[in-house]
Design a protein around this nucleic acid. Structure first.
Lengths: 124, 124
DNA sequence: ATTGATACCGAATCTTTTTTCGGTTATTGC
DNA sequence: GCAATAACCGAAAAAAGATTCGGTATCAAT
């Protein structure tokens, strides 16, 4: 998958959890699957700004950690469906809290963000 | 602070939230401050595997997004104390859910993790 | 005046993650 | 046979993020 060089410390709950679901798109993918968007190509259409490759890779990691299950039907253009495991579903309350928090504060965060970008424009 | 190259999409709650508190140590730092560990040097002692520099940087980002407040007393060896803002406190329920999830599944995750590492050992 | 503690910053470097791109395989429809 | 579609993989390159290191500044104690 990839070989890390630095030691990891999984000694607090936060770091353990982040190990499993940090990554640019993992939570979005879990959310999509939860909403019934279960095939890689569909997830990709749904999360337009994520590349298909990264979705595949993050699905593989989620699968590795038992967050999602995969069933590949051996038919037609090759059909794979992912679904949440029990473990995956146990993340849903966290997911919805995070999502709600983000929605509630989206305007504020975007405003701060654009201030940053403005400053990056002007050299000095 | 730093200039990014790729466009960001803050169109879903999850991505907005992650913008604010993703980062290797941000949640741990928020947790520490919540537990009364409020000065950079102390936070550093508490989160041993994070460097002081990264704590400073992540504190700066949290400050930028209004998650923490800073008050620098202009005394003795220079005393800075960080505390959670209202916005920061609104993250605590998420934080505790994440932490609990991680604790509950720590054994399982560590086991999977060590499998990965074993496989990385053997070349083929 | 030197040392020690604290906070903080800039820049180079290194690690990790994501992106890009070019494959492979398998099946359907033309 | 040839194009299209879906899933997926490997590897190079790019980008993002973290680390290392060496600095500044301030005050207090020795």
């Amino acid at each position: 998958m990839y070989e890390r060089k630095m030691e990891e410390d999984l000694d607090c709950g936060i770091r353990v959890a982040l190990k499993v679901f940090s990554g640019k798109w993992k939570l979005c993918i879990i959310d999509a699957i939860n909403r019934g968007i279960v095939r890689p190509a569909e997830i990709h259409k749904n999360i337009a700004s994520a590349t298909l490759r990264v979705i595949e890779m993050q699905l593989a990691e989620l699968y590795f950690f038992g967050v999602v299950d995969k069933c590949t039907e051996d038919v037609y253009p090759k059909k794979s469906e992912y679904k949440l495991t029990e473990l995956g579903r146990s993340l849903l309350p966290i997911l919805s809290k995070i999502d709600k928090w983000g929605m509630d504060h989206a305007d504020f965060v975007k405003e701060r963000q654009s201030e940053l970008e403005e400053n990056a424009m002007k050299p000095a």
